[in-house]
């Protein structure tokens, strides 16, 4: 059993972009996460209160953008996670047609940069179908991340030992029931950290939608910079705000991850 768990971890590591999520077992006060967060908050406070006034102005210019960034991210997560689950299930489906559709989707989308996808949906498709900014941004990000998450779901599901499926099937559960009562509830635990990673990456990648004029954080920083010519100040502030948000989110994911390990505790 221990060996299986080791293998499942190995599988997950293969599909992530890298550990954005702090290790929950890292309990020391001084670690990479706390240094980064304290540093970011202190720098931001210091710059805004002790630095030139343009830092403060830049920060005050951002809140609308922060809201939009959160809104885009939340909407995109709501679409991308179910899409990823469907894709992951499709990729392991025994139905050749379903499998082929899911695999082709993953191959195609992973091969096209998100920036190009955003342009494509907003500008190229506008010849046939006018999609508004917010839906276009959400669609582009969800379609892109649905493909990445599909791989995460697939790996997480395959990491559950085969004996679990056999035990469920031998009791009389069909394939679907086995997946939803037995496999997925366990797979969540291995899937959550990389999915959390992807969600945080999504928040950062929504910055790309500023190119279609969405007034998100990045776009707000850009307009502030172009009005005031305070490029350094504007982009320093927006970078620090992104950093603080993603660090806080990664902490939340790591806390949830620790909670999900409840049934592993031994005597």
């Amino acid at each position: 059993m221990d060996k299986d768990e080791g293998q499942s971890k190995a599988n997950i590591i293969m599909v992530t972009d890298g550990p954005a999520i702090p290790n929950p077992r890292e309990r020391r006060l001084i670690n990479a996460w706390s240094i980064a967060l304290t540093g970011a908050i202190l720098s931001l406070l210091l710059l805004c209160y002790a630095g030139p006034s343009s830092y403060r102005e830049a920060l005050l210019f951002l809140p609308d953008g922060i809201l939009l960034t959160f809104k885009l991210t939340a909407l995109a997560i709501c679409c991308a996670v179910p899409l990823g689950l469907l894709t992951g299930l499709g990729r392991i489906s025994r139905n050749r047609c379903v499998n082929l559709i899911a695999s082709t989707y993953v191959e195609v989308i992973r091969g096209i940069p998100l920036l190009v996808q955003v342009f494509y949906i907003y500008f190229a498709l506008s010849q046939f179908l006018r999609i508004q900014g917010v839906p276009a941004a959400v669609i582009a990000v969800s379609i892109c991340y649905g493909a990445y998450m599909g791989e995460v779901f697939r790996a997480g599901i395959l990491a559950i030992p085969k004996g679990q499926t056999e035990a469920a099937r031998s009791l009389g559960f069909n394939r679907f029931q086995t997946m939803f009562y037995v496999v997925l509830p366990q797979a969540w635990r291995t899937i959550l950290p990389p999915v959390g990673n992807e969600c945080i990456a999504m928040l950062k990648d929504t910055a790309l939608v500023s190119v279609i004029g969405m007034p998100d954080m990045m776009q707000r920083a850009r307009s502030f910079a172009s009005q005031s010519y305070a490029y350094f100040e504007a982009y320093t502030v927006v970078a620090l705000v992104y950093l603080i948000i993603t660090l806080l989110l990664s902490k939340i994911v790591s806390v949830i991850e620790a909670r999900l390990n409840y049934y592993d505790r031994r005597k």
């Binding site: 059993m1 030992p161 004996g163 679990q164 056999e166 035990a167 469920a168």
Partner: peptide, 11 residues
């Protein structure tokens, strides 16, 4: 059916 590796549902 009873398996060599028990295969209880750990969750």
């Amino acid at each position: 059916m009873v398996f060599q590796q028990f295969n209880l549902f750990p969750h």
